[in-house]
Nucleic acid binder design. Structure first.
Lengths: 327, 327
DNA sequence: TTGTACGCGTTATCAG
DNA sequence: CTGATAACGCGTACAA
C-alpha cells in the first residue's frame, strides 16, 4: 500500500479510502489511485486492516457434514448472501456431536469471525461460554424448539413430523412405523420421533416400540429397516422415515420385492431431496426450505454486521407436506 | 493477552510461547499460564498473530457448487486434513465459470490464505496473474490433462470415459449414446465426451452427432435425454451418461416404461455416487475417489505450508470401472 | 528459560 | 477532501 501511495503521490490513508470508501475521495484522486493499484497488481492486506479496525470480513459455519446436500444447500445460500456483501465463509465439519463443535469453536473464534452459524441446538457448556465471551451474532439452525443462544432460523421438526404422521392417519393408515438414525446422535431426528409419537397419541394410539427403529444413515439402511419392521409386524401399513434417503432405500426394496406402494405399504420421507420427486413411486415427504434458511441466516448476520438490528430473532421458515404417490 | 501475562506474572511473549510452542517454556510456567488462560477464557487473536508473523492459518477452496456432494466429499476430506493441523478452510462458490472464479479470487487473496484449491482447470488470464503474484501453493483438481499452475490432484476424465466406452464396446454394444451437461460450461464433461469419441474411433466407429446430447443437470434431464435419443435412433443399445444423476434419471425412466436394462438398453454413469449402487438395476459407473482427492490436496498444501516440498506436483488418483447390472 | 524492543500493514482519530 | 500520528495485539530477533 505504501508503494501505491508513493506512486500515486498520496498518503496511504487516501489509498485506503479510495479502495474502501470511494465517496470520500475526489474523483480525480480516486482514479489516479485505482489506476496505480491496477498497475501494481496490489491486493490489500485484510489481515492488517482487520487488526486495525478490529473487524474481519469473515463468518464461520459449523455443520454436521459438508458433503451432505441437506446442509450443502443451506451453506451454499449462506455463502452467496455473504458474497454479495464481500464477506467470507469459514467452514467446519462439526459431526453430530456438541463436543466436536466445542473443539472447533475456539480455533474459529481465534480468527475473529464477525458471526457464526451453528447447525444444531445442543451445545456444551464450554461452547456456550466461549460464544458468550466472543459476543458476536450467532444464528442457530436445525430446530425451532427451545430458546436460542441469539438468533434462530429453522422449522419445527416436531411439528413437521407431527403433521406428516397426522396426514398418514388421515389417509387411513393405522399401523405406522417410524425409522430414523440414532436419536442419541441426532436431536433433529429425535424431535421428529417425538412429533410422530405425539400425532399417534392425539389420535388415541399408543406408539409401539416394535414399530420404531434406529438405523445408520444410507439407502441400504432404509431397505433393511423395512425388512426388520415387516419381520416384527407383518401388518404394518405405512412407514415414516426421518430422511428421504432412508425412504428411497425402502422404496427400492419394495421394487425389488415387487410390492406395490402404497397399496402393500405406504412410505413417507423427510427433506424433499431431489431424488424424492423422481423415485418410484414419487415420494410423499416433508419439504424444508434449506436455501431459505441459509439466505435468511445470511441476511440476519449481515444486518447485525452492518449495525442494524434484526426484526425478529426467531424466524420460522415453516415446512410443507408434499403429497406424491407413495402414501 | 496482556491480562493473562499480568495475572500469570510473565511477559506476553511467554504466554504466546506457552500456547503455541509449549516445549519452549518450563513445565511449571506453562501450567501457570495455561491455567490463567483458562480462567480468563482468553482466546488468542490470530489476526494480530497473522499480521505479525506474516502467516495466516487459512486456506481457500473454490468449487462450482458447495451443495453438490461430488464436490462436497472432496471439500469435506480437505477440511478434515486441514483441521488436523489446526488450519482453516474458506469456501467459495465458483460456479462453472472462470470469470466467476476470477471475481472471487482477489477478495480471497486479500485474506492472505496460505494455499488455494481450485476445482477446474480453466482460469482467466487475470486469475493466473493474481495467483502468480500471491505466490502461494495452489492445488488444481478436476482433470489431469494439461500443465498445472502449481500442483494437481485428479484423474483423467478423458481416460476414464474412454475406458468406460471401451468397456461398453467390449460388452458388444455398438450404438452407444453419450449424454452430458453443456460442455461449454463444464470442461470435465467435455473431456469425458472426448474420451467417448476416442474410444469409438479406436474401434473404427465414427461418433454419431444424433447420439450425442447436452442437457441440464438433474434426474429429470436424464429421463428426457433417454426419450430424445430413442426418438432419434430407436436402435440405440446403450447410453453413457457423464453423471450418475443423469444415468439414474434414465434408469427411472426405463422402470416407468417397463424396459429391461440392460436388455433393451444399457446404461452407464459417472461418479459412483451413493445412489448408483442402489438403483434398479444397480448402475455400472466410473468411480472417482473424491475423498482421496481432498485428502491428498490437503496433505500437499500442509506440506508446503510447513516448508516441505511435495514428492510430486502431479498426482493421478486414477479411477475404477464399477461393473454392476445396468450394462 | 525468559524478556525487551520493535515492526507487521492497515485504519481511527483528529487536524488542517 | 487530504494527511499525520497513533494505535490494533501479536511474533521476530535479539539479548540476558
Amino acid at each position: 500500500m505504501r508503494d501505491v501511495a508513493r506512486r500515486a503521490r498520496v498518503s496511504t490513508i487516501t489509498v485506503s479510502r479510495a479502495l474502501f470508501q470511494p465517496e470520500k475521495v475526489a474523483a480525480e484522486t480516486r482514479r489516479r489511485v485505482l489506476r496505480t493499484v491496477e498497475a501494481l497488481g496490489y491486493v490489500p492486506n485484510m489481515v492488517a486492516g482487520s487488526l486495525s479496525s478490529n473487524r474481519t470480513r469473515i463468518f464461520a459455519a459449523i455443520v454436521p457434514h459438508i458433503s451432505n446436500p441437506v446442509y450443502g444447500r443451506t451453506i451454499h445460500a449462506l455463502a452467496d448472501v455473504l458474497r454479495l456483501h464481500n464477506l467470507h465463509l469459514l467452514l467446519g465439519n462439526g459431526g453430530f456431536s456438541p463436543a466436536e463443535e466445542e473443539r472447533l469453536l475456539s480455533p474459529f473464534l481465534a480468527l475473529r469471525p464477525q458471526g457464526v452459524l451453528l447447525h444444531g441446538r445442543r451445545h456444551t457448556a464450554a461452547a456456550r461460554q466461549v460464544l458468550r465471551q466472543a459476543a458476536i451474532p450467532i444464528v442457530e439452525t436445525g430446530d425451532l424448539d427451545g430458546a436460542p443462544l441469539d438468533m434462530l432460523v429453522s422449522y419445527s421438526n416436531r411439528q413437521a413430523a407431527l403433521a406428516m404422521t397426522a396426514h398418514l392417519l388421515e389417509l387411513g393408515y393405522r399401523r405406522i412405523g417410524f425409522v430414523s438414525t440414532p436419536i442419541r446422535e441426532n436431536d433433529r431426528h429425535r424431535r421428529r420421533r417425538e412429533g410422530y409419537e405425539a400425532a399417534l397419541r392425539a389420535r388415541g394410539l399408543e406408539p409401539e416400540p416394535a414399530r420404531i427403529l434406529e438405523v445408520p444413515f444410507g439407502f441400504q439402511s432404509g431397505g433393511s429397516a423395512l425388512d426388520t419392521l415387516i419381520a416384527r409386524d407383518a401388518k404394518i401399513d405405512a412407514v415414516f422415515f426421518a430422511s428421504d434417503i432412508l425412504a428411497v432405500g425402502a422404496l427400492l426394496e419394495c421394487l425389488r420385492r415387487r410390492w406395490r406402494v402404497p397399496d402393500r405399504i405406504a412410505v413417507a420421507g423427510f427433506d424433499d431431496q431431489e431424488i424424492a420427486a423422481e423415485s418410484l413411486p414419487p415420494l410423499t415427504t416433508v419439504r424444508v426450505p434449506r436455501e431459505t434458511i441459509g439466505r435468511i441466516a445470511g441476511e440476519m448476520l449481515v444486518s447485525r454486521f452492518e449495525g442494524r438490528a434484526v426484526e425478529s430473532r426467531i424466524v420460522d421458515v415453516g415446512f410443507q407436506i408434499i403429497t406424491r404417490q407413495s402414501a
